[in-house]
Design a protein around this nucleic acid. Structure first.
Length: 497
RNA sequence: GUCCCCGUCGUCUAGUGGUUAGGACACCGCCCUUUCACGGCGGCAACACGGGUUCGAACCCCGUCGGGGAUGCCA
């Protein structure tokens, strides 16, 4: 019986932008595979594009990975036996490997410039032909011609000799057998004129040297795979297993872009999405937990259930509504203490602070007060971004007032009269200078309604708008208790005009 | 254009020859209720189309259409 070797997988982003959802999903699935199989997850930075790679992007990617909780066993900062993990620091390795292929006649110098290529392409298409990629012009250069050009200082790239016939295929982890006619593959560049390897070359060399066993990547890489398999073949290496995951599309099933809304994990973070919710939603995109089971899962549950077999093979549309739902479910499952930690910086960020003069029993500190506020919210606390507007009226007098609600419920003679009546009753019934419980407020409100001969609701609704500025809030008596009698009276009188 | 992949409610999906085609999000209605939310109950809504194969197709085959990807000295 063969002991299965622990898989080694990697996420290999290029630092040319923020960590977007597609990349995050790819990273997540690799991470999930490693964690579920007891394997190793490697982070490798593919910064071989000198033009586009930036420090800021590099930092953004690491930040995004950390935010999502996708820790890597080998990679930047973590180190590891196969480093360095930045391709720009592995140039000598690629050079040595290129030399091997060159010596064996498997790679050749190409002196064509980009302009040469576009000119030839234009010539072909103008003649009504079909340009099918590099035409192999420099493949036929003799050693002497090549040497002469080099001696003259002509810049050149290196291309791989690819076979003109036959097929290249592999058994994909997601879509079963995939095959390409070698005839459609062209001699692509493996080392650029600036001496840097192309993605195709660096990726293969590194995956091999780093012992990668499974390459899980986006479906947009499918057409790169046969060429890369040819590179493995040129070295005499055994390719890893490949799995190509479906793309993530925008809600309109077009390529996901900024115009659809947030696309970077940073943006989701500022939108108040919890990392656990983001991971949960991303896991649900293109993967299914099977016939039964709760879709709302923490990371441990996802790791436990994860299986490559359940990866879908059709592109999936990103649904912001469902993400919001998953996020709300995660918030709902948080303990009061966890919610408090989540809310504290948001409240502090607004400059809001508790004041003992509010006379709220049991709230003898900012944390204790906020904890009680959050308790009244209950499941209404479903989004980090809407939290301030939900609790603003607990922290000051300049809370937002819904004008339409105010006009309808407060700004009428009848309502004003009732509110004035209620204010008077509260003042008379509730001793000043001390805290009062919700039940005490309720008693007075109901008694006043009875005295006025109106349904309690006729007093409650104007009250809610007067106290909170909105028609929606937690139970109004709990609100009164936490706003505290002094402020309740002030607001009622202000509303009563 | 060429090559590759995909095609179940609007969306994410379950389903691998026989199901009243299931769940979730969204949407609608009812209940609960001092409002909102939560919760509960119910509803709307799908096998892209056309041919086969088969006693029987969402499931297998072919074609069409539709969507996506690739076609770089980007990754």
């Amino acid at each position: 019986m063969n002991a299965p070797t622990a898989p080694r997988v990697r996420f290999a982003p290029s630092p040319t932008g923020y960590l977007h959802v597609g990349g995050a999903r790819t990273a997540l699935f690799n991470w999930l595979y490693a964690r579920s199989q007891g394997g190793t997850f490697i982070l490798r930075i593919e910064d071989t594009d000198q033009e586009r790679s930036t420090e800021a992007s590099y930092a953004a990617i690491l930040r995004g990975m950390e935010w999502l909780g996708l820790n890597w066993d080998e990679g930047p900062h973590a180190g590891g036996p196969c480093g360095p993990y930045l391709q720009s620091e592995r140039l000598d390795i690629y050079r040595d490997h290129l030399k091997q292929l060159a010596d064996e006649g498997k790679a050749y110098r190409c002196f064509c410039t980009g302009d040469d290529l576009t000119a030839r392409e234009k010539a072909v298409t103008d003649a009504g032909g079909q340009w099918e990629g590099y035409d192999g012009k420099c493949r036929g250069l003799s050693a002497e011609e090549s040497a002469a050009l080099v001696a003259a200082g002509t810049p050149h790239a290196w291309r791989l000799h690819t076979p003109a016939e036959g097929v290249t295929f592999w058994y994909d982890l997601v879509v079963d057998k995939r095959e390409f006619q070698n005839a459609v593959l062209v001699d692509r560049v493996i080392v650029k004129a600036d001496g840097f390897p192309t993605y195709q070359f660096a990726c293969v060399v590194d995956d091999h040297l780093m012992g990668i066993t499974h390459v899980l990547r986006g479906d947009d890489h499918v057409s790169n795979t046969p060429f890369q398999i040819l590179i493995y073949g040129a070295f005499g290496w055994t390719p890893p297993k490949f799995g190509h995951m479906p793309m993530i599309l925008g809600p309109d099933r077009k390529r996901l872009s900024k115009r659809h809304g947030a696309t970077s994990v940073d943006e989701f973070a500022t939108m108040g999405i919890l990392p656990a919710a983001m991971v949960n939603y991303l896991a649900l995109l293109g993967w299914s937990i099977g016939a039964s089971g709760d879709e709302v899962m923490d990371v441990a549950a996802i790791v436990k259930k994860f299986s490559l077999k359940k990866i879908n093979n059709a592109p999936a549309a990103f649904d912001y509504d469902k993400l919001a739902h998953i996020n709300a479910e995660h918030i709902k499952r948080l303990s009061p203490a966890q919610r408090l930690e989540l809310a504290k910086p948001i409240i502090a960020g607004r400059g809001w602070a508790w004041d003992p003069a509010w006379l709220v029993a049991g709230a003898d500190s900012g944390d204790a007060y906020l904890a009680r506020v959050l308790a009244t919210l209950g499941n209404r606390f479903s989004s980090l971004v809407t939290l301030p507007e939900r609790v603003g009226f607990f922290y000051g007098e300049d809370f937002a007032i819904e004008q339409a609600d105010w006009d309808e419920h407060v700004a009428t003679d009848a309502a004003r009269g009732r509110l004035a009546e209620l204010a008077g009753a509260l003042e008379a019934a509730l001793p000043a200078g001390q805290a009062h419980a919700a039940t005490a407020f309720e008693q007075v409100v109901r008694a006043t309604a009875e005295k006025l001969g109106v349904p309690a609701g006729d007093l409650i609704h104007p009250c809610r708008v007067a106290l909170t500025g909105q028609t929606r809030s937690a139970g109004i008596f709990e609100v009164m208790e936490l706003v505290g009698a002094p402020r309740v009276l002030a607001r009622l009188r202000r509303a009563a005009g």
